[in-house]
């Protein structure tokens, strides 16, 4: 067993455990902290798989920007202690049964496909930022432009939806008299 494989297993296990903790937490901030751990562990996995650029992005964008954004929103919502109580009341053991069975079946199928389908081979060589950059601004240029547009749309959408008007209720969420 070489070092890389050891690192892969360790960080993979960390990622799985951290994710399990994320999905079982009642407190949002705790869940987010475990999420960061999970992301960081995955970044290590990326690195040992030979994708250093992706690993860096994982740390910067996922663990950094996106999680921070979610934390901001949680802070803006100003949730009290009773939010945690509520979460506890929602997450009774019985709700785990159905989704758990479904996902177990799905997982079993994926395992079957992976193990019986001849997915073999090793990651042999690292692909650095240079190649990624060449590809991005070469054959994938149009896709880059499109993702730029997507981000633009996201910005405008977030601005439009996030405006808090005093009286006027957004028409998608308008209260109907029932």
């Amino acid at each position: 067993m070489n070092t890389d494989l050891l690192i892969f297993f360790t960080s993979g296990a960390v990622a799985i455990v951290a994710t399990i903790l994320v999905i079982t937490q009642y407190n949002m901030i705790h869940a987010l902290l475990y999420l960061i751990v999970s992301f960081l562990a995955l970044a290590v996995v990326f690195y040992v798989l030979g994708a250093p650029f992706a690993a860096a992005l994982e740390v910067i964008v996922y663990a950094g920007a996106i999680v921070v954004l979610i934390i901001f929103v949680i802070m803006m919502l100003n949730l009290k202690k009773d939010a945690e109580e509520q979460e506890k009341s929602w997450l009774t053991p019985s709700v785990w049964i159905g989704p758990g069975i479904l996902c177990a079946i799905l997982m079993a199928e994926i395992l079957y496909v992976l193990l019986a389908g001849g997915f073999e081979g090793n990651a042999t060589q690292a692909v650095g930022a240079r190649e990624v950059g060449r590809s991005l601004y070469g054959p994938y240029l149009i896709a880059v432009e499109l993702s730029g547009l997507l981000l633009m749309a996201g910005t405008i959408g977030a601005y439009h939806l996030g405006r808090q008007r005093r009286k006027v209720i957004h028409r998608f969420l308008e209260m109907t008299d029932e």
């Binding site: 159905g98 989704p99 479904l102 996902c103 079946i105 799905l106 199928e109 994926i110 079957y112 496909v113």
Partner: peptide, 16 residues
Amino acid sequence: VLGIVVGALLIITLGI
């Protein structure tokens, strides 16, 4: 969401 998951499950099962 459940509908989507069940659908995915059906398709993969069929594929196998």
